[in-house]
Amino acid sequence: MTSIRMVLRTGLENLSRLRAALPWLAAAALAAVVARPARAACDCVLPGPTFYPPHVPEAFAPAVFTREEVAALTCRPARQGRLACTWTARYVLTRTQSTAIPLSFAYPTGADITVSFDGAAVAGSVDALDPRFGVDQRELFATWPAGQTDRLVVEIRADLRLSPSQCGCDSARTTNRRRHPLVTRADATTYALHYRPDDAPGTMRLTLDLRRPWQERRPRLFPGGKGRRITRDVVKERDEPAVFAFKTLYRLDPGGPVAGLGLSFGPEGLRPRLRLGWEVAWPKIWVHSLVIETDARRRVAIIPAWELTYPYTPSRWIPEAGVGVGVPVQLAPVARPGVRVFVRLGWLWAAVVGTFDVYPAVRGAPPERLGSLMLQFGL
């Protein structure tokens, strides 16, 4: 009896301690929930190719000064979600001694680079880059000859293919990345190019020119910059690279296959309903799909449909909702078009889809109203 009392007393004491700790646990949980979006939206460094201004060896650096610096990035759509880009830069250099001065130009591996001195292309030697500049880089060496003018205009042009950058710290997912994780693996809309200018001069002119609409990511070099082409005079930040990081808008999201099963309600009563098709998104807020549905007995229809959703969620674990319309084309038992409205409530690759179809009277067949409730999956 005494042991039972001791056990009860110990349990009550533990319960009291747990009750006292509940406010602290709730506060910690709330803090975690609030802090999670901040981590999801973190501004991590986006990977991308890196360019540098002309490099002067230390022995000659005190005699060479950069008086003017202009850089630009121009990009056009290319295959496989990449951009065909051209990086151009212009420098006005002066020197205080007339001796020959070696210069080197660092650029990413795979870029096709051309360097010009006062408008004339120079044939330099190409070698592996000095390790202090990083990996996946190359270096072109050229010489500012002795006896020429003490003012030199250096122009650089590099053609390269820019691939999407993956930050890795943003847990928010686009509609089709959540619905089709096996097919739509990457968010092919964010691109970045890094440029590491010297301290002097204190400002430089930067231009970003894209054929399609774009929106800049942080850190912002172009405050309020949206559109197709924009130019700014930027004040340099010491030891900080200038990052051309931007998102192209209205890009086609490849999506993936969908399959569903459920029940339909119509003139024949309660019957099974099966569906199979594919869906894409363009822009991300608007999902386009083409599916074929059947009751495995009598009815067969092809349905193009359009669904309005939201492109991002704060977390991949938050359910999403969508509403849409479609144009079901019934193939059997009577060929005729109809109108569909539907709603969708999904979580990751699974969703519940409710549809309502109306078929007008045609060829002597009476009008019909069909409804269905299906469980749908994506890959």
Rank of each mutant, 00 (worst) to 15 (best):
L263E: 03
L263A: 11
S264E: 12
S264R: 15
S264M: 15
F265H: 10
F265S: 07
F265C: 10
G266H: 10
G266E: 07
P267Q: 14
P267E: 15
P267L: 11
E268K: 12
E268S: 14
E268M: 10
G269N: 11
L270F: 14
L270W: 13
R271P: 05
R271L: 15
P272Q: 07
P272M: 08
P272H: 10
R273N: 08
R273C: 10
R273D: 12
R273W: 13
R275E: 15
R275A: 12
R275C: 03
R275Y: 01
L276W: 06
L276D: 01
L276K: 10
L276R: 05
L276N: 01
G277S: 08
G277N: 14
W278V: 07
E279N: 13
E279S: 14
E279Q: 15
E279R: 12
E279W: 01
E279V: 05
V280M: 07
V280G: 03
V280K: 01
V280H: 02
V280R: 00
V280T: 14
A281F: 08
A281R: 06
A281D: 04
A281Y: 05
W282C: 06
W282K: 05
W282N: 07
W282I: 11
W282V: 13
W282M: 08
W282Y: 02
W282A: 09
P283W: 02
P283G: 06
P283V: 02
K284E: 09
K284A: 11
K284Q: 07
K284I: 01
K284D: 14
K284N: 14
I285V: 10
I285P: 00
I285H: 02
I285E: 14
W286H: 07
W286D: 07
W286R: 07
V287E: 10
V287C: 04
V287H: 00
V287A: 04
V287D: 09
H288C: 01
H288N: 10
H288K: 01
H288I: 06
H288G: 09
L290M: 03
V291T: 14
V291L: 11
V291R: 05
I292D: 01
I292F: 06
I292K: 00
E293W: 04
E293Q: 15
T294L: 03
D295T: 11
D295I: 11
A296I: 13
A296L: 15
A296G: 11
R297Q: 13
R297E: 13
R298V: 09
R298E: 15
R299M: 06
R299E: 06
V300W: 12
V300K: 00
V300G: 00
V300A: 02
V300S: 00
A301S: 15
A301G: 00
A301R: 14
A301N: 06
A301Q: 13
A301E: 12
I302T: 02
I303K: 05
I303F: 00
I303N: 06
I303Q: 12
I303C: 10
P304K: 01
P304M: 00
P304L: 00
A305L: 01
A305E: 15
A305K: 05
A305H: 03
E307I: 08
E307W: 02
E307C: 05
L308R: 12
L308T: 04
L308G: 03
T309M: 09
T309Q: 08
T309A: 08
Y310L: 13
Y310N: 13
Y310T: 08
P311E: 03
P311I: 00
P311H: 05
